[in-house]
Design a protein around this nucleic acid. Structure first.
Lengths: 106, 106
DNA sequence: AGAAGTGGTAAGAAAATATTACCATGCAAA
DNA sequence: TTTGCATGGTAATATTTTCTTACCACTTCT
């Protein structure tokens, strides 16, 4: 399954879940309805700008639309904690932390 | 400043920071060099799939390329920097950093 | 100076997208 | 049932975008 098909599927899923018809989505996106049909059939590319628009319209993350790994709640908590703690360090010290990480057993 | 110009600027910034010439980036992306030039000049759109490819090649987040806030909440430069570095890691490695930081004195 | 690497740009060819229209299906009201 | 309407798929061709190739200017080496 191609990236395009995966993105297409998520765009359709997001649209349906947001309760919009292709025609309504097209209007809000400033596109013709067939464009939505083709996008959801993976026959038409989606530009980076359109991706942002779609994410806004359908109320989803661009990362999710792109099929990237989404951190679950637990990991998000830890991620934010780690980032917050790291941000208290100087950039050079942050580098040191990452260097330590590289030495740690896998 | 349009979304396209913002994305274009970040793509250029990411490429330069990753130490690649336009020609090298083009080869890795499966594009002709002028395409990179035009993309970075905001004269050519970037597809969602290309965005994923660029993020992989330049080792940055698609969210960052799209100009989205990496995390809501903290806004400091240091936090953004730390978060960006963290986001390059695998989830399991983020956990390791998290564990290290928990041990550190406050 | 010459050679090589870089990035910008132009022109015609090729490909993708837009526009408009028509079709089939499903569904609810008359 | 039949009519009307909403929905989504698709075809034809006009339009726009992108690709390809080439040439240019500028810089950095030797």
């Amino acid at each position: 399954m191609s990236e395009r098909e995966k993105i297409a599927g998520r765009l359709k899923e997001a649209r349906v879940l947001s309760g919009l018809s292709q025609a309504q989505a097209a209007t809000k996106m400033g596109l013709q309805r067939p464009a939505i049909t083709e996008i959801e059939a993976a026959n038409r590319k989606v530009s980076a700008e359109e991706l942002l628009q779609f994410a806004d319209l359908y109320k989803v993350n661009t990362s999710w639309l792109l099929g990237e790994e989404v951190l679950d709640g637990d990991e998000t908590e830890e991620f934010q904690f780690a980032a917050r703690e790291l941000s208290k360090l100087k950039p050079e010290d942050i580098k040191k932390v990452f260097d330590i990480l590289k030495i740690l057993p896998k």
